[in-house]
Simulated scan of single mutants.
Amino acid sequence: MADRDDLTRRSVLKASAAAAGLGLAGTASASEDGGLAGAEPIPCVDVTDARSDLEVVDAASVAPETSSGIGPGSFLLISRGGTTAGCTANFVWDDGDDVYLGAAGHCFLPGETAASKSAGGSFDATNQTVEVCIDCAFGGATGLNGITGGRLVELGEVVYARQSENGVGPGNDFGLVRIPEEARGLIDTSMPKFGGPAGTGTLEAGETACHYGNAVAFGETFLTKGRSGAGLGSTDDVWRAATASAPGDSGAAVQTCNPSVTGLQGAQAVGALTHLTTNGVAGTTMSRAEEMAAEADLDITPRLG
């Protein structure tokens, strides 16, 4: 996974520390570039050595009621060329015939490759193994001491992946992996901790944005995996927010959240978290994700929580 595969523990910690300094509330003023100057893809986490104790199971043997399910926030392990990278899934998508799990396109692609063959690019993204880790948690104070608990369920082939178009990453980063029929009983379309979404929409400036991801330093327990911040606005392709993120979050589902008696309640699906920017995070909108999937002749719609 190119430059994302050779992340050292030191570089991951530095990235996490930098992400921890992002604004957690409030809004930032708009800049001429829309706040996307210097945007960088959120790295996957190198978990090659951390996955050795995980149990690989047949999807049909895992009881849905005892698992955390396959859906928003799922911990994805993507193996290729002797390395395994950890990312976060976004929403469950349906085209009427097959069912897919969304992710960041850059989780499936080498750093120099814009898109998979299915998206008109050159890279064969099907030549890798994608697994969902059920009931997994990072271990240790920084999430780098191994993955504790959990069982691995193998997904199908990567049917679409793009991480940039005409050299632009934000708003052009999305991927899909097929959920095999035998694993569909594990699907849980609601976002852990926040619930929802009940529909799709945009993220307006000042709205509360929520996401649930597997970032080092943040995503180590159920309580810290879920985070919220303030929306910084959206275009047709890109949403932006001031919230905390770090390596491992890449691809995570983002939605608006409304106050409730129990905290924040998920409302509208916004899109996939893909980039760190100079004043927060950014990602691909729901409408843009559907538009991108059409490059592979996939007419997808999200399954709501």
Results as ranks from 00 to 15, higher is better:
8 T>L: 01
28 A>K: 13
59 A>V: 14
243 T>M: 10
109 L>V: 08
65 E>T: 13
102 G>A: 11
58 D>I: 12
180 P>E: 04
42 I>C: 03
241 A>C: 02
43 P>L: 04
141 A>L: 15
180 P>F: 03
5 D>T: 13
82 G>S: 05
230 A>Y: 06
245 S>N: 06
212 Y>A: 10
7 L>E: 04
82 G>P: 07
170 P>F: 00
159 V>M: 02
56 V>Y: 15
89 A>W: 04
231 G>V: 05
135 D>T: 15
272 A>D: 04
246 A>R: 11
101 L>P: 01
228 S>R: 14
89 A>H: 06
43 P>Y: 04
299 D>Y: 15
160 Y>N: 08
235 T>Q: 09
263 G>H: 11
202 T>D: 10
302 P>D: 01
48 T>V: 05
158 V>A: 01
10 R>Q: 11
246 A>L: 10
281 V>W: 04
157 E>F: 05
223 L>R: 14
64 P>F: 04
47 V>Q: 04
143 G>N: 11
210 C>T: 09
118 S>R: 10
283 G>W: 03
67 S>G: 06
260 S>D: 12
125 A>R: 05
271 G>E: 02
229 G>Y: 07
29 S>L: 06
185 G>S: 07
21 G>I: 09
111 G>K: 11
30 A>I: 07
33 D>Y: 11
46 D>K: 08
156 G>R: 05
116 S>W: 03
63 A>F: 08
155 L>D: 03
64 P>Y: 07
166 N>Y: 06
33 D>C: 13
251 G>K: 08
72 P>D: 00
139 G>Q: 14
